[in-house]
Simulated assay, not measured.
Amino acid sequence: MRPNFYLQNFLRQPSIRAAGEFSLPLIHAPISFVDVGDIAHVAARVLTTEGHDGRVHDLTGPEALTYAEVADEFSHVLGRPVRYVGLPDDEARAAMLRGGMPEFHVDALMEVARAYREGGAETVTSTVPDITGVRPSGVPHSCAGTAGSSAGSRGSGGRAGEPAGPHRLSRGREEPPAWPVP
């Protein structure tokens, strides 16, 4: 299975609720974000049904959106403005390092940002509904999950209505601001 950019990365952006914005490396192109719950449902089917040996399943959400369009979705769900702040590479890198992210991880995320910047992640596949029989969750579902979570929390990665809980490091501290993980 090859999932595209996880929708739940937005749930790790407490600044959406706290400040009405989220900052990520500057990317202009649309991305077909995929919900981790959809990935889990596909995995369950792939592991329990025949016909998947040796096959590659590209997993995406139902549409490709830019970060600015995702901010618009959050604005609609939260009932107040939310904006995307695209950071130049040097500022994004410095912010991740200040947040305590290991340098090797920062390097990998910056490479992904450069690859996605002008395109390459906008393809939408029908794999999720083809395998599960259910339409992928999409960005509005993720936005609603974020709106229903407390600041600094993230959803369980499941479907609407499932409980959300705080994401903590092993020592009980709040996790530092996260950056996208494809």
Results as ranks from 00 to 15, higher is better:
Val181Ser: 09
Asp89Trp: 12
Ser15Arg: 07
Ala95Met: 13
Gly133His: 03
Met101Leu: 13
Val34Asp: 01
Ala164Ile: 00
Ser149His: 02
Thr123Glu: 13
Ser150Ile: 11
Gly158Asp: 05
Leu26Glu: 13
His105Arg: 07
Glu63Lys: 10
Asp90Phe: 11
Ser75Asn: 07
Arg173Lys: 00
Pro129Lys: 01
Ala40Phe: 08
Gly148Lys: 02
Arg83His: 08
His76Ser: 08
Thr127Val: 09
His57Asn: 07
Arg173Trp: 05
Val134Asn: 04
Ser150Lys: 10
Glu69Tyr: 10
Tyr84Phe: 15
Val134Tyr: 09
Leu78Trp: 02
Thr66Cys: 06
Ala64Lys: 00
Gly158Glu: 01
Pro14Asn: 03
Leu65Gly: 04
Gly61Phe: 03
Val70Ala: 11
Arg173Gln: 14
Leu97Val: 09
Glu122Gln: 12
Tyr6Ser: 05
Pro62Leu: 09
Ala40Lys: 02
Asp107Glu: 15
Ile16Tyr: 03
Thr127Asn: 02
Gly54Cys: 01
Glu162Asn: 03
Pro129His: 07
Ser23Met: 14
Thr49Arg: 14
Phe33Cys: 04
Ala113Lys: 02
Pro3Thr: 07
Val36Ile: 12
Asn4Cys: 12
Ser156Thr: 13
Ile131Gln: 01
Glu111Thr: 15
Ser170Glu: 13
Cys143Ala: 15
Val124Arg: 03
Glu175Val: 11
Val134Glu: 14
Gly99Arg: 00
Phe10Thr: 07
Pro62Val: 10
Asn4Thr: 12
Ala94Phe: 05
Arg2Phe: 11
Ala108Lys: 11
Thr48Cys: 08
Ser75Thr: 14
Leu169Pro: 06
Ser137Leu: 15
Pro177Gln: 06
Val134Gly: 00
Asp72Ile: 00
Pro182Ser: 10
Leu97Ile: 09
Thr49Gly: 12
Tyr6Thr: 01
Gly51Cys: 06
Arg17Tyr: 09
Glu63Arg: 12
Asp72Cys: 02
Met110Cys: 11
Val42Gln: 00
Gly145Ala: 08
Pro81Glu: 14
Val70Asn: 04
Gly157Ser: 10
Pro102Tyr: 00
Pro62Arg: 04
Arg135Lys: 14
Ala29Arg: 03
Glu122Phe: 10
